[in-house]
C-alpha cells in the first residue's frame, strides 16, 4: 500500500467515526438532557452556560414529582392496559396465524386478503367512530375501553403467519397420523418452535401500548383511569415552569421502555426488521 493510499484511508476512517459519533451524540442528546435536567436545581436549569451535569444530583426531584400527581396510579393503569392488551394480542395472533398457515377452510384466501387490506386503513380515521362505539357501549372510563379495541392486530397476524408457514408441513401431517388434534399441535409444536417470533411480537406490542397516547386520552375522564402518557401531559400543564419536575416525570415514562430495550434489543430489532422487510 502506498503512503498516499494510507493517508486517504486514515482520513476516511477518522471521518467515518467522526460522523458516526456526532450522529450518536445528536441521537442520545435529548435523553441525556432529559436525565440531566431532571436532576438539576431550578437555578442550574436556567444557568448560562448550561452545564451537562448538575453539581449535586437532585434525586428528590423524582420524589417531589412522584408525589405531586398520582403517578403510582398512572403506572399501575398503564401496566394493566399494556399487559392485558399484549396477552390478548398474543392469543388472537397465534390462533389466527395458525388458521391461516395450517388449516384449510372455505374462503381462506378472501379472509386473509381482507385482513391485509385493513392495514391500509389509517387508524386515525377509525378513532371518531370507535369513540362513538365506546360511548354507546357505556365503556367510557374503563379498562375495557383501552384494551378491547387493540387486542387484535392484522399486522402481527400477517407477520406470524409468515413464520408459521416456514414450519415444514410434514411435521403437521406426521402429527395428524399420530392423531394429534389441531389445537394440541398448535400449542405443543407451532408455538414452541416460533417462540422467538412470538416473543418479538409481545415486546413490540408492549412498547406500543405503553406509549399509546390519544386513544386512552379520549376514552377516559377521571384521574383514576388515566395512563402515564396522559398523566404526564396533564402534569406538564399543572407543574407549569417546574421544568426539573416535568423532566423527572418524562423519565418515568421513558425509562422502563429503554431498560426493556437495552436488555431485549435483539428481539425488538428482529421483529421490526422482519416486519419492515415484508415487501
Amino acid at each position: 500500500m502506498t503512503t498516499k493510499r494510507k493517508v486517504i484511508n486514515t482520513v476516511a476512517g477518522v471521518l467515518k467515526y467522526g460522523i458516526l459519533i456526532f450522529g450518536a451524540i445528536f441521537t442520545v442528546l435529548p435523553f441525556v438532557w432529559m436525565i440531566s435536567s431532571s436532576l438539576k436545581t431550578p437555578a442550574e436549569l436556567v444557568a448560562a452556560p448550561p452545564s451537562l451535569f448538575p453539581e449535586v444530583p437532585q434525586w428528590e426531584n423524582y420524589k417531589t414529582a412522584w408525589a405531586a400527581a398520582p403517578f403510582a396510579r398512572y403506572f399501575v393503569n398503564t401496566l394493566i392496559v399494556t399487559l392485558c392488551t399484549t396477552c390478548g394480542v398474543l392469543v388472537t395472533t397465534v390462533l389466527s396465524a395458525f388458521a391461516f398457515s395450517r388449516l384449510n377452510f372455505p374462503g381462506k384466501k378472501t379472509v386473509f386478503a381482507l385482513f391485509l387490506a385493513t392495514l391500509m386503513i389509517p387508524g386515525e380515521m377509525l378513532i371518531i367512530t370507535n369513540y362513538e362505539t365506546i360511548i354507546n357501549l357505556k365503556w367510557i372510563d374503563s379498562y375495557k375501553a383501552m384494551i378491547v379495541p387493540w387486542i387484535s392486530s392484522a399486522f402481527y397476524i400477517y407477520l406470524l403467519t409468515r413464520f408459521f408457514m416456514q414450519v415444514p408441513e410434514s411435521l403437521y401431517l406426521a402429527a395428524k397420523v399420530d392423531k394429534c388434534s389441531d389445537f394440541k399441535y398448535m400449542i405443543k409444536i407451532m408455538v414452541p418452535m416460533n417462540k422467538q417470533a412470538i416473543f418479538s411480537i409481545a415486546i413490540l406490542n408492549i412498547i406500543s401500548s405503553w406509549n399509546a397516547f390519544l386513544w386512552p386520552l379520549l376514552v377516559t375522564n377521571s384521574q383514576e383511569m388515566r395512563v402515564l402518557s396522559n398523566g404526564l401531559v396533564r402534569f406538564q400543564t399543572e407543574a407549569g415552569s417546574s421544568t426539573e419536575l416535568i423532566m423527572a416525570a418524562s423519565c418515568m415514562l421513558v425509562m422502563p421502555i429503554i431498560i426493556i430495550y437495552l436488555f431485549l434489543r435483539k428481539y425488538i430489532i428482529e421483529g421490526v426488521t422482519r416486519g419492515g422487510l415484508k415487501g
Binding site: 435529548p30 435523553f31 432529559m34 412498547i207 405503553w210 406509549n211 397516547f213 402518557s229 404526564l232 401531559v233 406538564q236 416535568i246 423532566m247 418524562s250 415514562l253 421513558v254 421502555i257 429503554i258 426493556i260 430495550y261 425488538i268
Partner: peptide, 9 residues
C-alpha cells in the same frame, strides 16, 4: 422505542 409524547416534551 421511546414515547413521542415524553421525548417531545
Amino acid at each position: 422505542v421511546t414515547s413521542v409524547i415524553a421525548i417531545g416534551i
